[in-house]
């Protein structure tokens, strides 16, 4: 199960072949080191940078969700922005209208999105991948209009959206709101990340990967194809919803036009850049989609779309495995240097 995803394999030269037997996760030492760095970082940087890193984690969760769907079960979705929006609105409405504690809104957002994903996926998943891409694309384009609907306006705030209050640090901890939110997000991220790794290693995860590798063979072996496909889609939507809820709390604002097809494209790009099916890559991809648009906007306004597009092309032509390929390459380079 731990072999490399071939979902994204192209007709490239053998150099893109990755060594077999590499696990889905990073090595233990490296993981601990990264965790340690993540824990101390907020002590040294400005609040705005903390906010940006928080956004990287949040988008990382959303990209991870897409990765479970695409890398795990071989389907793909262009409608992740819709579930992200649904999660954000669920959290926002619960907090602002019903006064629910922010931490408690996240599981609710996750469950709402899981249910929505499950229901939405059910018809689309009976068909081949291209129909799912089509249906999810339509969902992403239609979502902002659905959110602006007059009948929900009392709850959603219509075009104006909702302002969400940023939570204070509990127990009178002497840290800023941003830093607290960062640690909170980090904790949520860790829980989701570890759960996802276990999920992919579990029986259900193996069933999903069997479907990804060969649907007909999987069904012949007794895997309930449509159930597991729908389940993968639901789980992916649910995790995206949690990311959306976190995003609403971090940005302190939800509005229909923040969740357009552009967001879905960004998340998709994050997955491709990070390497399809490689969970740690999700965060590399997320860092990419948070920081690169800023750079592009500095050159010229409105350029980020073109920049994203060109980079997406570069990645699929030159480094089809994304960050994973870069990481493996770096590793083999270090090995070589050690030997000489």
């Amino acid at each position: 199960m731990s072999t490399v995803q071939e979902t994204f394999a192209t007709t490239k030269s053998p150099s893109t072949e990755l060594p077999a037997g590499k696990s889905n996760a990073l090595g233990r030492n490296l993981s601990l080191l990264i965790l340690l760095v993540m824990l101390v970082v907020p002590l040294f940087v400005r609040n705005f940078v903390i906010f940006q890193i928080t956004m990287v984690l949040i988008y990382g969760i959303a990209v991870l969700a897409l990765n479970i769907l695409t890398g795990g079960s071989g389907q793909f979705s262009l409608g992740q922005s819709a579930f992200y929006a649904l999660g954000a609105y669920t959290s926002g409405i619960l907090m602002e209208h019903l006064g629910v504690n922010y931490a408690l809104t996240l599981p609710v957002a996750g469950m709402v999105c899981f249910a929505a994903g499950f229901l939405f996926g059910f018809p689309a998943l009976r068909l081949s991948g291209i129909y799912l891409a089509l249906a999810t694309f339509a969902l992403a384009v239609a979502m902002p209009q659905l959110l602006k609907l007059g009948i929900f306006e009392h709850w959603t705030g219509g075009v104006q959206g909702l302002v969400v209050t940023k939570p204070d640090a509990p127990f009178d901890l002497p840290i800023s709101q941003d830093a607290w939110l960062y640690y909170f997000t980090l904790a949520v991220t860790l829980v989701i990340y570890i759960t996802s790794i276990f999920l992919l290693k579990s029986r259900s995860g193996r069933a999903m990967m069997a479907i990804r590798d060969n649907e007909i063979a999987a069904s012949a072996m007794g895997v309930d194809v449509s159930l597991y496909k729908t389940l993968a889609f639901g789980i992916s939507a649910g995790i995206t919803g949690i990311a959306g809820g976190l995003g609403a709390i971090a940005v302190q604002f939800v509005a229909p036009d923040s969740y357009t097809i552009q967001l879905a494209i960004a998340l998709f790009l994050g997955m491709v850049v990070g390497g399809v099916g490689w969970l740690p890559g999700s965060f590399a991809g997320a860092a990419f989609i948070v920081f690169v648009p800023n750079l592009a906007e500095e050159i010229s306004k409105g350029l980020s779309g073109a920049f994203f597009g060109v980079l997406l092309l570069v990645v699929i032509y030159l480094v089809p495995h994304g960050a994973k390929q870069v990481a493996t390459f770096a590793e083999s380079l270090i090995d070589k240097l050690r030997k000489t």
Partner: peptide, 28 residues
């Protein structure tokens, strides 16, 4: 043409890239 034999995901990525580029360039 170079993507003719590539898997579906690569092709979808290509179309999405084209979508983003054209939209952004037209705006520019």
């Amino acid at each position: 043409k170079p993507l003719a034999k590539a898997p579906v995901l690569t092709n979808v990525a290509g179309f999405i890239a084209l979508f983003a580029i054209i939209n952004s360039v037209a705006g520019l």
